[in-house]
Design a protein around this nucleic acid. Structure first.
Lengths: 188, 188
DNA sequence: GAATATATGGATCACTGATCCGGATAGTCA
DNA sequence: TGACTATCCGGATCAGTGATCCATATATTC
């Protein structure tokens, strides 16, 4: 890649990060280009779709969440490992308003730039779930896809201004439903 | 209202119903107008916003759901009444893809044409919840707003093509979390 | 310094909902 | 029946969106 192209790409990524933090993932691509002092065509050449831009922007976060799941697989309590990882996932999405809808669409759209990241994340969660189930710490009538859907739904709650105040509380309610230990009281 | 205006309004409403059933609530207003052989301006004069159009279109359904809640308040089992009403709510939203997001926005936007209907619906659910709680059949750490948010989240799941296959199953999981009876097995 | 491969961004397109206003028409009154 | 007026209609237009084209500019190579 030519030096000027690399510079523009990096600058666009940084600008996009700021713009998305301010206005959510639905921010106008033209606005991002404008703020980066670059033509819209340039942005779209580097990132052909909004998903491609987000993939480049969120790749690090995705990797961190996946890595975290890997670490937690070696923890003492499969139950706490699962719940705390799920909490991290939901908390992370709050940094990128609107990303949940895109992830839900990407999980089964093999053409989406976010597809691979989403599938990897789902697999990481599925491993934590399986371990908890094997330890008798999680109900056995759900699988990784169910878990992904539940997390997405809870993350979506946090994206809706009117429902967000209930998101944390409802996370605990749902987490309690996943975890089978009747004595569990949650962290709230 | 002039006779021709009334006729156009009714025709637009019918056309909108068909178009929304086919393409979801985000269907282009221009498309609806075109299919009704009417100018876009005419549609927007009768229904100034998408919410206003939906309010007119869904008013009947809203009223039916509210009425159903009223009937169920007199039923034998507060628990079954609550769960079956919640199931009806979620099932209803599947007829109008995308309506959940609009309802979530409308519940605290007093300017929205859907606001009143949403608030009424939430209150109806809150009454069923309170009755179930009084009978010791529902956990007492949630209120009407929590219930609304949970139903919205489950309805949203049904709106996402990739997550929809899990929606019914996850409804039972969440319903079980709301209902406290440990012996309950759900209907699945 | 010249040649060439690559990157750029203004211009344009199809689409969205919103708004304006000249013209058509329904309802009323003579 | 005919005229008048309040009401309604819809084509045209506007600002916004993402997508695409291509003449221009520039980094890189020889």
């Amino acid at each position: 890649m030519r030096a000027d192209a690399r510079k523009n790409r990096d600058h666009l990524l940084a600008t996009a990060g700021t713009a998305i933090a301010e206005h959510g993932v639905d921010v106008s691509l033209r606005d991002i280009a404008r703020r980066a002092d670059v033509g819209l065509a340039t942005l779209l050449r580097h990132f052909p779709t909004r998903e491609a831009l987000l993939d480049a922007l969120l790749r690090t976060s995705f990797d961190e969440l996946t890595a975290k799941a890997g670490e937690l697989e070696a923890s003492d309590s499969p139950e706490d490992a699962l719940v705390s990882w799920l909490r991290d996932c939901v908390a992370w999405t709050t940094e990128y308003r609107g990303v949940t809808v895109l992830m839900a669409a990407a999980i089964e759209d093999t053409e989406s730039a976010l597809h691979t990241s989403c599938v990897t994340l789902r697999a990481a969660g599925a491993r934590l779930l399986t371990r908890a189930q094997a330890a008798g710490a999680a109900r056995t009538d759900i699988d990784g896809a169910d878990l992904f859907a539940l997390v997405a739904a809870l993350a979506w709650l946090g994206d809706q201004p009117s429902l967000a105040p209930r998101a944390d509380h409802l996370f605990e309610v749902v987490a309690n439903a996943i975890v089978t230990d009747p004595g569990r009281t949650g962290t709230e």
